[in-house]
Each structure stands twice: as structure tokens, then as C-alpha cells.
Design a protein around this nucleic acid. Sequence first.
RNA 1: GCCGGAGUGGCGGAAUGGUAUACGCGCGCGACUCAAAAUCGCGUCUCGCAAGGGAUGGGAGUUCGAGUCUCCCCUCCGGCACCA
Length: 842
Amino acid sequence: MEPYDHKKIEQKWQQRWEESNAFRVDDASDKPKEYLLIEFPYPSGDGLHVGHVRSWTALDVVARKHRAQGKNVLYPIGWDAFGLPAENYAIKTGVHPKITTKQNTDNFRRQIKNLGISFDWSREVDTTDPAYYKWTQWIFLQLFKKGLAYKTKTFINWCPKDKVTLANEEVVDGACERCGTPVEKREKEQWMLAITKYAQRLYDDLDTVDYITAAKVGQRNWIAPSEGAEIEFTIANSSTKIVVFTTRADTLFGATFLVLAPEHPLLKELSVENTDELAAYILEAKKKTEIERTNDEKEKTGVELKGVKAINPANGEEIPMFVADYVLGHYGTGAIMAVPAHDERDNAFAKKFNVPVKLVVSSRIQVTRTKLDTTEGYDATYQVAEYSSPLNEKNLQDLAKAAQENYENGFEHPLGPTLYTNPGILINSGQFDGLTSEEAKKKITEAVGGKIVTTFKLRDWVFGRQRYWGEPIPLVHCEKDGWVAVPDSQLPVILPETDIFLPGTEGESPLANMDEWVNTTCPTCGGAAKRETDVMPQWAGSSWYYLRYADPRNADAFASEQLLRQWSPVNWYNGGMEHTTLHLLYSRFWHKFLYDIGLVPTTEPYMKRTSHGLILAEDGSKMSKSKGNTVSPDTLVEQFGADSLRLYEMFIGPFDQPVLWNTNSVVGVRRFLERVWKLRENVTEVHMDGATETRMHQTIKKISDDIDALKMNTVVSALMMYSNHLAELKTVPKTAYVALLQLLTPVAPHISHELAEGIELEHAALEKWPVYDPAKLQAETATIAVQVNGKVRGTVELAADATEDEALGKAREHTDVAAWLAKGREVKAVYVPGRIINFVVE
RNA sequence: GCCGGAGUGGCGGAAUGGUAUACGCGCGCGACUCAAAAUCGCGUCUCGCAAGGGAUGGGAGUUCGAGUCUCCCCUCCGGCACCA
């Protein structure tokens, strides 16, 4: 038998699959559909990463299994090809991004085909193709027409190196996600998408999908609804009102000052005595980068608004007002009521600026004075009772009364004289004394005419990019009509050709210099008008690409209604955790919008989301070109073969966890394939022995279950154990061998097909998934451990259907066991068929 | 600080509450060879001559039986972080 020549075999089968369009999916098939999706790659100049191979091979295994099980499987691929690296490369070298993109996608395509991944290449999409981005623009216009795209002057995150606006999500540790430069704040007119209008639904509908917990939690934390109240404060001697957002309306009586964010619009209207000081502070705050703002060790800064007081609506007291950058302009109403007794930040600020602190909620209440409270730093002779919820009415009244007395008698609060942040029982709050925080929130809000609201951390999506290599925003600005949508008939708005890719010094898009392109006519009035010169962010094209796969060549719609119904939703989507709050959230938003306007049939795009762990270099660091610790799939395919690489990447460790790459270990799976290769020599039409038959059925079950659960590392080890078993036999029963090939095919398709051909197996057999017989999972006899007091003292061979009496009897006959039993008195015997026997001896 | 995830041999890791360390790497010994590589076989948690004992980050608990379930603590990785 000739040696295992992976190059020859892999080339042969890849060519056959290519020629026969083996993985082309048929829209008209009446088999049940299964739509499997991986995140389409950005075709970088570095080529394929071993991480791509891990993720795509895993779903390829799933795809191939589902096909074998009779499903109509859609497993597509495409290119998310707009983006900064190609543009930066163009700035450096003058080579147009279009050219680099073409080169890179060609290289990726070649590399992927060398891996034998069963993508349906007939559905390839490319976000930079005008036939594709026509529909990206079209969907944007639908958002615009529904008022969900708007231009506004806002503080944006600005990367001074890339000269580009960044979305909130693209800022990592106060620095640009791509280049690490500290991000600055700039005020700029920007196109925004109102994703916050969908915040509640994006949050709630997570309950309807099957995402890995980390992804759900990540999105929930990012959207972060927070229930609270908006309460109005009036400025003394004025009709001006300031609305604050608080989650602690119960502490309103303790609000001893008000704080506005530096960006608060009302600051311009108030007549303040210290205008210069105020202006200087606001300027300073705006200049600060995110890093500076957070590196301040939370040391509070601020300026009092001299000559202006606010009135606390609960007790009518006049309280001072401040501006401080610890209050964020974009969250809530950009203004807070500060309650220094019950909020850490307000407390720190009050101490620094000498504002009174007033306790209005108590947690621990003096009950008796019999014992010493050992809380460090307090030697008062009282014992405290913990506040615990729920309390009954009577208790509450007693406790509130005691708390009030305690406070009036000047006892310090056991947890500290001035700060207590947990809920408790109200004191010093007039008619609301004695209520729990929970009750008081509602009643106090009501009493001062506030309203209950939910505030989200999620912010609207900054959608404009002042760059070249992106989809032009298809809007025209007309002096008379304002912003006007480019009519559908003029879509796509083609990205104009240029050889100047550098953004302007003020950060304007390179498109802004192209007068011929910019100057146009207004579609509404026919007068002179200018095109929007910003382009869309990279997240635009990827927000809907999974819909395009359903009908990738459609020229009349982004996809036909019928094909969307056929393929929606995506059954299983695998991708990186880093996209949880970016791509994954954005595309859910677009999808829900498209659902609302009746264009997609489901409320959610993806039924199930899984995530692969990162592949790290051997020393645990991230693989990167600059560190020179990357591993090239090409080299591995050359040296070991695609099948070995695929097997290794599945075997490397639990799929959802980060793993360390170790090229030396690839030889292990290569040896395994060599053994499977040699096994063929011993295959004959003999009858299967019982042990082999049992193993076969167990292995089929194990591998079937594990593929569905994405436990690929144990899939490979099960294959190894099964083939090791077959290798021990002198003659390998053909049936058992065929099952091995069927089970091996999804992970190592090339060698499996070659071997199947070698035993003249009819081609169709490999395309069928083996089925196990539940009745044959159990061996006729099994080795059962016998324990005495939980310690194994021997094993016995038992028939699968042995009765308890038989089993225990046989166990007692075991000489070692008998010796241990003789040491005491047997009080109990446990027999779990097929598992264990345990004697309890005293 | 808050929220996730994870701690098991020299290493990657396995284990529906039921013989912990499967599978693989590495290492050791042996076979084959003039030799080497490749391949094959055997061995490989730890203490102990043995009988036995001890080990799944630490401590308690539930159970006939715990890596697995419950509670407390420690460490590492990831995410969020002045969000009122």
C-alpha cells in the first residue's frame, strides 16, 4: 500500500469538489434547511490566521454532519472588505484599496480552499462591491426616512493618529481600538443612528435567543437599563428648571447640592457670578482625553456656580450648585442631585468642597445598649440590629422610631458617620420616615411630581467616518430642502476614484476635496446641492450580510421575500467575543428595524450564538505579526496536510476557551491519520465481534452528541480511541471501518474520501451519517468497581442485566472485597447497575 | 469596585454524582536498524519494600460515594467601570 501522501490526496479531492460544485446549496430543495454562519473575514494582507481555521473548521464539521443527516445546509463565505488597514496602506504606498482588497481576497480564497472547508462559493459576497453596497446604502436610507438616522453636533471620540471618528464601542481604555492612540473629545456634526430607540427590545429579546451566556451578559451590561426617576429642581428666584435622573429618589431629603456635567446646555443660560472660572473649567474638562479623565484616581474636581441656588423640591431648602466632570453629559439628563450621605462619589465631592452631609437612610438601628459593638473604630455602647428586608409593619415603625431617636441623640452611624450606600429605612425625611427605600422611591417621586423612567447606558451609534474606504452616505444637502435622500434609482452612490486618500487636517473626508463629485443637484428641487462626504463605518456592511447570502445576486432587492423566508433565521452563528457589543449588537438593531418595516420575517437574526476562544502563542501572548509569533496555515498545510491541521485545531482544547498553539503537537494527529491510513490493509468482510459492535455504537453516539455541543476536542479523542481499538484487531470488519470513515469525514474530509474510494465504498455511503442502535450501547458484560466505604477494593465482571442479588453476591465473593468486609459489620450495600457497587461497613 | 470564565500529571487536557488523570504531546526502556529517522511494544501522579496511604487551588458541608452539588476563602484570565 502506498504511503499517505496528503498533498496528492487533498489536491485531488479539492479539485473534485470544485468541479462538481459539491457544496452549492439548492434553494429549491425540500430538505429541512440549516443555516450556519461564521463571521465573514476582513481580508487583511497578513492572510489567514490559525484562529480563522479554528472557527471555520468547527462549523464546517457541523455543516458536513448536518448534510450527511439529510439537511439542506447553507454555509456561506464573503468579505468584509471596507476598513482602515487597506486605506492606511494606500496612504503609505499609493496603491488603491481596491487593488489590495482584490489581492487579499484572492489570497484568502486560495488559502481557504486549501483547507477543504465546505463553503458555498457561489454565494460569495463582498461589502466593497457596488452591487452589494447599493443595498447597504438603501437600508441606511430606510433608517433615514424613519428618522433613525440624524445629524447632530455632538462630542465624538476622535483618534488624532487615524484622523477618524470612533464609535463609543471602538474606544478601548480611552484609546483608539486600532492604533492605541489616546482618544480626544471633539465637537462635531455627525451622522448618528438611533440604536437607543431599540435599547429595550435589544435587551428584552435576548431572552428569546440561544446565545452563550457571556455574549448575553456582555450585551445586557452594555445596554444596561437602569430604573429610576426624573425629578425637577427649580432655580431659586427664577423660572429655570433642571431635571435630574436618580435611582435613589428615596434619598431626596438628603440631596444637599446639585451637579451639572460640563457639557450641560443650561450652563450657558444661568447668570453665574464666576463666569471666567467656570468657562476655564469647562474648557479644561472638554480637552481632557478619556484616559486623563479616568486616570485621575477619581479625585473629584469641580466649580461652584456662585450666585445660583437650586431648591430641593422635597423640603424647599436652597442648595448650592456645581459643575463637575464626574457627572457625564451623555448619561441620564447630564445633571444629578448629589446625596453625599448615600453615594460614594457625592460623598468624596462634598468632603472636598465642604458641603453638608445629611443622613436620610439608616441601616442599623440602636435597639438596646447592653453590649459592645465591635465594629472597628466605634466603641459606642450599643448593640445594632441589621436591617433586613422584608420587615413587617410593626417592626418597621419600631425600628424607624428607634433610628430617629438614635440620630437625634447624636449617635454616629455604625458604618461610618457620613456614608451609607445600601437601601434601608428612611429617617429625617418628614412624612416618609420609617418607609423602606423601596417604598419611598415611589412615594417621594410621586409627591414631588417626578416620573419613573428607565435610562440606558447604551448610546446612539456614531455612524459617520471621515475617510475614503467606506460606503458613501447616500445623502445630499440642499440649501432649501436640507438633507435629502438620494433616490433609489440613483443608487448605488459609487465611491469616486481618487489617488489622494489622506483625510484633511480638520479631519474632513478625502471625498470633500473632490468638487466634481461633491457638487450635485438636489433630487427634490433640482437646485445646487452638495453630497455628504462622510462614509459609513465598517460595521455597516456587516450589519446585514447574512441576509444577502440568502439571495446574493438579486438586483431588485437586498434579498427576495421568499428566499428570506426560506433561510431565516440563521440557525447557528459562531464568532469572536470581541464583537459582542459591536457587530452583534449593531446587526440585531438593523434586523429589528428591517422587521419593523416588514422586510425580514423574524424578530431576531441569529437563533444561536457560540464563540471560539482565542489561539495564543506558545508563551500565552497574543499572536501578532509585530511580535513575529504567528503561525501560517499555508506552512502547516504544506508540511502536515489540511486534514492534520483541521484535526489539530479541533483537538487543541475546549472550543470556547483560549488555547496555546503548539506546532510540535500537530504530529500527534498526523500519526493518528497515518494509523487510519494503514488500517485499510486489514479491512475485510468479517462479522463484527460484540465488543467492537458496542464500541461502534458508543462512538457514533459520542461523536454525534459532541459535534452538536461543539465539543470538538473530545470528538477527536473518541475517533482516536475507536481507531486504536480497530487497530488492535487482526482483521477489521468493514462495517466498523465504514463507520470510522463516516465519523472522520467532517473533521478530515480528504483522507476519508480517499480511503472510502480505496475500499470501493459506494460514494453515497460517506455522505450518510451513521445511526447508532440504543440497544447496543451497553456491552453484554461490564467491569464494575466494588467499593467498601467508598474506596475501590476490586472489580467484578457482571452481565448487563444482572440483578442486585447476583451483583452483590458476586462482589462479596471477591477475595479482596471479602477481606475488607470481614473487618466490620456490613450495614448497607449500594448497587447502581452498570456503574458501581458500594458496601458500607462499620 | 461590578459582571463573566477558569484553577486536575512535566505539558494540552478528559470525566451523565459512581474505578480521577481518558486522548494526545513529552520523557524513559525495549524491538527493528551497521546507525539514525520513522514505526511498533511496554512504562510514566505521589509516598511506601509491601500491605496500604495521599492527591483535582484552600477550608467546611450534603451524600453510601464529590473534580462534579452547596457555602466561605485564595489565585489567574477576560469584559465593564465616576452610568447617578
